[in-house]
Amino acid sequence: MTTFLHTMLRVTDPAKSRAFYEALGMEFRRESDIVRDGNHEATLYFFAFPGEDVELELTYNTDGRSYELGTAYGHIAAGVDDLAETLAALEQEGIRPEREPYRVREGGSLLCFVQDPDGYRIELIDRSGA
Rank of each mutant, 00 (worst) to 15 (best):
D116L: 02
L83H: 02
D81H: 11
F47M: 02
S32Y: 14
L124S: 13
S128Q: 03
E31P: 11
A15R: 08
S109T: 10
S66G: 14
E27N: 07
R96E: 06
S66T: 11
L83P: 00
K16R: 06
N61K: 02
E123N: 10
A19K: 00
A72D: 04
L90D: 02
S17M: 00
D81N: 10
T2R: 04
A77Q: 01
L9H: 13
E68S: 12
G25V: 07
G79A: 09
C112L: 06
A23T: 04
V80Q: 12
K16F: 08
I34C: 13
A15D: 07
V54R: 09
A42Q: 05
I34W: 15
G108E: 00
E91P: 01
G108T: 01
F20D: 04
T2I: 07
V114E: 02
G79I: 01
E57K: 01
M8N: 09
E57M: 05
I34T: 12
V114D: 05
I34K: 08
Y60G: 11
Y73K: 08
L111R: 03
E93G: 00
T2P: 11
A72N: 04
F113W: 05
A88E: 05
I76K: 00
G38K: 01
Y120E: 03
Y60T: 05
T2D: 12
D116Q: 02
T7Q: 03
D81K: 08
Y73A: 14
Y120S: 12
E41K: 07
E27Q: 09
S109Q: 05
A48R: 01
P101F: 15
P97K: 02
E22D: 06
P117D: 01
G25F: 14
E57C: 10
S66R: 01
G108F: 02
S66E: 05
L90P: 00
A72E: 00
A23E: 03
F46G: 13
A130H: 14
A72P: 02
D13A: 15
P97F: 11
R103T: 14
N61I: 01
E27L: 12
L5A: 15
T12W: 00
L58Q: 04
E31M: 07
G25D: 03
C112W: 03
D126F: 13
R96F: 11
E55I: 14
I76L: 10
S17H: 00
L24Q: 02
F49H: 09
L110Y: 15
D81S: 15
K16Q: 11
T86W: 04
R36W: 05
S32N: 10
I95Y: 10
E123V: 09
Y120C: 13
V35C: 07
R10W: 04
G64S: 03
Y60D: 09
D63C: 11
G74S: 04
G94L: 08
S128I: 08
G119N: 01
V114Y: 04
D53Y: 12
E93I: 03
R127E: 13
E98Y: 06
R29H: 14
V80S: 14
L87R: 03
S17T: 03
I125Q: 08
L124F: 07
P97Y: 10
A130Q: 12
V54L: 12
R121N: 13
G38Q: 03
I125H: 12
G119F: 04
T59V: 12
D82A: 15
R105G: 06
L9C: 15
T59K: 03
F113R: 02
R10T: 15
D53Q: 10
S109P: 15
T59S: 15
D33W: 07
V35S: 09
L44M: 05
V104C: 10
V54I: 14
L111D: 06
Y102L: 08
G74E: 00
